[in-house]
């Protein structure tokens, strides 16, 4: 459904991506893996239109979207939950969620979508009126994912969801994300912890040094020698 083909990207003169190819199916969880500074976040920024691709193309549902704006992409259903959560900290949880639904504000289903998110994350329902910046890291991450879901995504890209969270919370979050994907969307999980991520994901792509190194089903990657040696550490 989303095809990222041979993209490269730069920050000023510094090349961050050299040759990244990534393919997302219409459903399921895809893990996007690689060590620190591999280019995972940069790839997401290119896919969401925050920075341009210097070369290569991005297709979504068969259409070339390489030149479209971030706003258009959100409206199409490509939603990016950024690294570090980036909530509007002084605003309430509910206001953060409402803003996430900005591109869908005219369909009069805001209340229904809020309910759906509160179903997935009952903690957020309890904290609706709380200032987002005052919550725990796990709750903030739930709010960030919820804000992304408010846009009614077809593709939900979540950058470093587990960063800084306690292992129990990470387990919970993975389970919730799997549940969200099961409602019929494609979730791209960016993670540094290759092993954990490959346990929840259906598919995986590994990137390193701005280049796609391996891609396949999660099971294939778990068994692959290259992946085991370079990224799983055994």
């Amino acid at each position: 459904m989303l095809e990222v083909m041979n993209i490269s990207a730069y920050y000023g003169d510094a090349q961050a991506l050299e040759d990244v190819t990534l393919s997302l199916p219409a459903h399921g969880v895809t893990a996007f893996l690689g060590p620190n500074a591999a280019g995972k976040s940069t790839t997401l920024r290119v896919v969401s239109g925050l920075i341009p691709a210097a070369t290569g193309t991005i297709e979504f549902e068969g259409r070339d979207i390489t030149g479209t704006s971030p706003q258009e992409r959100v409206a199409m259903g490509i939603v990016h939950v950024p690294e570090g959560r980036r909530l509007f900290n002084t605003m309430t949880v509910e206001d953060n969620l409402i803003l996430g639904g900005y591109t869908k504000r005219k369909d009069r289903k805001t209340a229904a979508r809020l309910d759906e998110i509160y179903d997935h994350f009952p903690k957020l329902a309890e904290r609706r009126k709380q200032e987002a910046g005052l919550m725990s890291g796990g709750e903030q991450q739930m709010c960030a994912v919820g804000r992304g879901m408010m846009a009614g995504p077809k593709v939900l890209m979540i950058d470093e969801m587990s960063l800084g969270l306690a292992p129990v919370i990470v387990k919970q979050m993975f389970a919730i994300v799997k549940g969200i994907a099961a409602t019929g969307m494609s979730v791209l999980l960016v993670e540094q912890h290759v092993k954990n991520a490959l346990e929840v994901a259906d598919f995986g792509t590994i990137i390193d040094g701005g280049i796609t190194r391996a891609t396949g089903t999660a099971a294939e990657l778990r068994e692959s020698d290259v992946v085991r040696e370079s990224y799983l550490g055994h």
Binding site: S48, A75, P82, R86, M91, R105
Partner: peptide, 23 residues
Amino acid sequence: TLVGKVLNALVEDRETAGLIGIP
């Protein structure tokens, strides 16, 4: 109002506001 929430969001973090689809 929604307009006000959007303006507040821009005060706080305009890059993220753009990322979540706000013009």
